[in-house]
C-alpha cells in the first residue's frame, strides 16, 4: 500500500524545491540550500527554521539524508546530505498541482508584466 501523500507547508515546499535543485550533487546540504533559498526568494531564511523544516520533511518521509565525510574546513565535521524521496516528489507535485489549479484563470494577475 502506498503511503498517503503528506501535506507540506509553504516554507517546507520551498525547502523541498531547493533541495531538488541541488539533488545528487555535493551541494545538497544546509549551507548551499539556504544560500539558494535566500537568493531565489530574496528573503532572509532563519537557520533554525531551515533545520526544523529539513528535519520535519525527513520525518514525513519527503527527504532522506546521509552523513558525508568529515572535512578540514568544517573543523573535522561531516556534512549531512539530503535527497528528495519519491514521496517528497509526490508531495511537491501535489502542492504544485493544487497551486496550479488554484491559479488557473488568474494568469493576467499573476504573470509578471
Amino acid at each position: 500500500m502506498t503511503p498517503p501523500t503528506p501535506y507540506v507547508g509553504e516554507f517546507e515546499y520551498s525547502v523541498l524545491l531547493a533541495v531538488l535543485h541541488m539533488d545528487g550533487g555535493d551541494d545538497a546540504y544546509a549551507v548551499p540550500v539556504r544560500a539558494l533559498l535566500e537568493t531565489r526568494t530574496g528573503r532572509p531564511v532563519a537557520r533554525g527554521a531551515l533545520y526544523t523544516a529539513l528535519e520535519r520533511l525527513e520525518g514525513k518521509g519527503c527527504l532522506r539524508s546521509r552523513m558525508g565525510d568529515p572535512t578540514a574546513e568544517r573543523g573535522g565535521k561531516a556534512r549531512r546530505y539530503f535527497t528528495v524521496t519519491p514521496l517528497g516528489v509526490r508531495a511537491l507535485k501535489a502542492m504544485h498541482t493544487s497551486l496550479a489549479n488554484l491559479s488557473r484563470g488568474l494568469e493576467s494577475v499573476l504573470e509578471p508584466s
Binding site: M67, R74, G75
Partner: peptide, 30 residues
Amino acid sequence: SPQPPRLAERLLRASVRDPEWREAVTGDLR
C-alpha cells in the same frame, strides 16, 4: 580553519539531541 567561540559551540552541541544533526549543524556553522 578558525575556531568558533568555544562556549557558544559547546552550548549548541548540548542543545541538539540527535548526534548526526549535532555534527551537521556545528559543521555548517564552522
